[in-house]
Amino acid sequence: MGEPRDEDLARRAAGGDDAAFAELVRRHAPRVRALCEATLGGPAEADDAAQETFLKAHRSLGRFDGRSAFATWLHRIAVNHCLDVLRAASRRRSESLDALLEADGAALGLALSEESPAKALEARDTAERLLARLNPEQRLALTLRETEGLSYEEIADAMSCSLDSVKARLRRARAELLEAARHFSDVRDV
């Protein structure tokens, strides 16, 4: 017997079985929440986004055809929702935030050039401002690569885009960040 498969739970949930849907939420909440938090930064925003992801999934259960794994299908909904949130945020962002703060670039440059094992920047505002410089697609591709370790093919699948788009998005995201870091480390090296 064992545990019911996700796909069976999804079929039951589509038929109105709320307990089956609750079990799906229980199983997949940690990954969905982690993705939302890595993409959106703040825990409150991440919680909202994760809830919205599951609500959208619940409304679309009738369209889940079982051709892909439930986890893959749900992940795609989460990715799309995070993209929507990032796009809305980038439309709201003021011009002033586009100017990179010198201190942010310097902090990144230092963290990238140290010899000790890499660890996350203590100042989350700094990481957030740096990531906010990327466009939503670039930022999400980088997040999927760096936090979930997805292959390029898996990222293309999750973002419904081509392999070339994945390569281009990652390349631009990283070039932008290294550029921000380099500017200040070069100045310091002189």
């Binding site: 709320d18 849907f21 609750a22 939420v25 229980r26 909440a29 940690p30 929440r33 982690a34 938090e37 890595a38 919680d47 994760a50 809830q51 599951f54 609500l55 619940h58 990144l108 963290a111 990238l112 094992p117 890499a118 660890k119 996350a120 920047l121 989350r124 990481a127 740096l130 990531l131 980088l142 997040t143 690569r145 760096e146 936090t147 990283r174 960040l177 290294l178």
Partner: peptide, 28 residues
């Protein structure tokens, strides 16, 4: 780059997960 910009996700706390399940199911 990845390790510097992203914090590792905290391991899921079962109680927090249950509270989350309850919030979602309330909205469902």
């Amino acid at each position: 780059l990845g390790a510097v910009l992203f914090r590792a996700a905290a391991p899921a706390d079962p109680r927090a997960t249950e509270a989350f399940v309850a919030r979602v199911m309330g909205r469902v």
